[in-house]
């Protein structure tokens, strides 16, 4: 019998891994900025750009413009996608008509229809939010629909036998049973919203991280470009953490494979 060796790295705690990972990333960044200084601004320069813009408040204006845009578009999409998904799951005629539309539009990159929406709604806030709304809605409605469709029929039967009306079944079985899917949909929807934000901001306006990146690249301020990219990454991670927290809070009852 061979003794099973425990690999040495299994003893390293996870915070130490996070540090190692970060240190390596910065090392790579330094190497890149040393090799291609015209493209990759050094960490120091980006930090300076950050401090300067954070102090003047300009950075936060951009961040707020983008985050509020994403959250509004996403929020409306979330509220609309839930009833639409339920309608699709419950009324076959509705689904037969609507699902092909959703599948068709879903595969079109938002950048392609941005101009159509601008032509219709102008270059302002409304059109930006609309683009985000469309993209997030399409992802979420499909995910939630699949969740509702997949609710265990035995649970619905059990509820009916215990005296549940249609309304009871909706609120006490279908909604809780599809909560995990609704949260997965929220996660996908948020990341889609963030992706689509870039498409929506590409066409003008004055505030927003997308705008900040675009303007800076026009002046070849690569430190600001990189700063914008990093800010987007941080926002994305924050969204993800919030949804994960909600998932732990609301779907802890789920059967999971323990590691």
């Amino acid at each position: 019998m061979k003794e099973k060796k425990v690999p040495i790295w299994s003893k390293v705690p996870s915070w130490a891994w996070a540090l190692i990972s970060l240190a390596l990333a910065i090392a790579l960044w330094l190497a890149a900025s040393g090799t291609w200084p015209a493209v990759f601004a050094s960490p120091e320069k980006v930090l300076n750009a950050f401090i300067e813009r954070a102090q003047s408040g300009l950075l936060w204006e951009h961040v707020w413009a983008s985050v509020s845009r994403v959250l509004t578009g996403f929020g409306i999409a979330f509220v609309v996608s839930i009833p639409v998904a339920f309608l699709m799951a419950w009324y076959d005629p509705f689904r037969h008509v609507v699902e092909p539309w959703i599948q068709f539009i879903r595969n079109i990159p938002p950048l392609a229809y941005v101009f159509l929406i601008i032509a219709a709604l102008g270059i302002g806030q409304t059109s930006k939010i609309t683009v985000i709304f469309i993209a997030a809605f399409l992802v979420m409605v499909i995910t939630i629909y699949q969740g509702v469709k997949g609710v265990d029929v035995t649970l619905i039967k059990a509820a009916r036998v215990l005296g549940a009306t249609q309304k009871d079944i909706f609120f006490k079985v279908t909604i809780p049973a599809s909560t995990p899917f609704i949260l997965v949909a929220a996660r996908l929807g948020l990341s889609t919203s963030l992706t689509t934000l870039m498409a929506s901001e590409i066409v003008g306006g004055d505030k927003g991280i997308g705008m900040m990146i675009q303007q800076a690249s026009g002046y070849y301020q690569m430190d600001v470009v990189l700063l914008g990219i990093i800010m987007l990454g941080i926002i994305g991670i924050c969204f993800e953490k919030i949804v994960r927290f909600l998932e732990r809070r609301f779907t802890g009852w789920q059967e999971t494979i323990q590691q």
């Binding site: 265990d152 039967k157 509820a159 036998v161 005296g163 006490k172 809780p176 009852w253 789920q254």
Partner: peptide
């Protein structure tokens, strides 16, 4: 279905998001 007939299913059919107590209370609350 009616309250005069109860069913026990092979697949248990417990509501996974409810505790044991809440599961048993489900029909009573209804």
């Amino acid at each position: 279905p009616g309250p005069d007939r109860g069913i026990v299913f092979q697949q248990y059919a417990l509501f996974p998001w409810l505790t044991v107590l809440e599961n048993v209370k489900f029909g009573l609350k209804l």
